[in-house]
Write a protein that binds this DNA or RNA. Structure first.
Lengths: 238, 238
DNA sequence: AAAAACAACTTGTATATACAAGATGAAGCC
DNA sequence: GGCTTCATCTTGTATATACAAGTTGTTTTT
């Protein structure tokens, strides 16, 4: 099968399988079609199919077993990025709500920004918004996000309420988050944060600053997070 | 070039290049030899060389640029696992010291262990030890580690003082850490932890529990960490 | 019935080759 | 000098093929 002009064939296989897994066509623990089956489906060869499966492995959608097959697994929380989990049985998405406190707005980069910015980033202004995540209506995580305003037409007016930022970037702007770094502290909340999270001032808070790089030059996503970990915790898989 | 019996050729290339990077033969920002050069060196083909370079990319030792080459980068702190960093200019290894509080000992798994254990793990006993890491002689991170006692001859009597656990496992036992999960809380230290880290009881502490899987069935590494993030923070790259 | 051998599947490793496409510096042109 | 073109380096994508080795269920042997 010939790849279309825009994207290579192995990526189409990756995207197809990922979409199918996310749609629930393969459940956790099930096997994907064998490499040879996929070769027939996409009319290609094992090297290409294996390149796609290798990508899915890195993303955490599958684990592979010699002689057995590709086993569908719980996808990683996106590249080792810490995500919110419940202490008990996990936070069902029905219990988790997100509200925008500050809708996306264009502004200059703050002068005292918490990560060093390069020239390319400083040439553009930044998009800023804040969100508050609640579990069972109790505020748990407050998040301030900044990203370079590069090639993001219409982003300002999008609804971020209950959609993943990463999913929007991937599906609407063809932007993939590649890698990043995060720094974590345990702090005592100041008045502002404590009020937002509705906790006493002496209560410990988990504070995190992170930078996520994308496949677009100078387009990075920065966020500063504050999490009340009394009832829940941050978790990641890698 | 034929691979030797034990390990495949692509792995030898990976290990060679990794060792050379770690020895400083290639500095950050420099280019590795081109794929075709490596083909000649190891008398193999690009598919195999690319498999090796892809591994180094995943480990964070290099980033690849189309048309340019393989650029040596700061290695990730191992698979997105949080590691200790300084707020100022980074913690030089000369300032970081590790002391063993409880030397490696065999014992049964604790009954109230903080991760669920499978049957295979419960068949073996576990190796337990604790370490305290200091930066400029100030205690910063206390760590309790548990791992299954499987195929680890002589591990009990090894010196862990200033060597990386992962490096010992890789070089002496051919064990690679593959993936894992970690959970993070901000807490107030109890009497015990506060004394170990030499801080006031009301001071927030970063608490982390993590599980690291290896390429050996049923051999997982568990640890429980407590970190004073007043002067330093935990950081990871992914 | 239990054990061994086998067949048929799976993924893992490897060779050989081809062309596309990004990066870079040199040669030639205006 | 400043510009384009070109050659040559690099990595990216892809085909076709082969055998090794792990997994599983069936068949044969004992």
């Amino acid at each position: 099968m010939k790849p279309d002009k825009l994207s290579p064939l192995y990526k189409k296989v990756t995207d197809d399988l990922r979409a199918q897994i996310e749609k629930g066509m393969y459940r956790k623990g099930e096997l994907l079609p064998s490499e040879n089956d996929l070769c027939k489906t996409y009319n290609t060869t094992r090297v290409t199919v294996r390149q796609a499966l290798s990508g899915l492995t890195n993303l955490g959608y599958i684990t592979r077993r010699h002689g057995k097959g590709s086993i569908v697994t719980e996808p990683k929380a996106g590249l080792g990025i810490l995500s919110l989990s419940g202490v008990t049985a996990g936070v069902g998405s029905q219990n988790l709500s997100t509200s925008i406190l500050q809708k996306q707005m264009k502004q200059d980069w703050p002068l005292d920004f918490f990560f060093p910015l390069n020239e390319g980033e400083l040439k553009h202004d930044c998009i800023y918004f804040t969100r508050l995540r609640r579990i069972n209506d109790i505020p748990v995580l407050y998040e301030e996000t900044y990203l370079s305003n590069i090639n993001l037409p219409g982003f300002i007016s999008r609804e971020l309420e209950n959609l993943s930022l990463f999913k929007i970037l991937r599906e609407s702007y063809n932007i993939e988050v590649k890698e990043g770094e995060q720094k974590i502290w345990a702090i005592l909340g100041d008045k502002n944060i404590s009020e937002l999270l509705n906790i006493k001032k002496s209560h410990p808070i988990l504070h995190m600053k992170r930078k996520l790089k994308t496949n677009i030059q100078d387009l990075n996503i920065y966020s500063s997070l504050y999490c009340n970990t009394e009832e829940h915790f941050l978790q990641d898989y890698f």
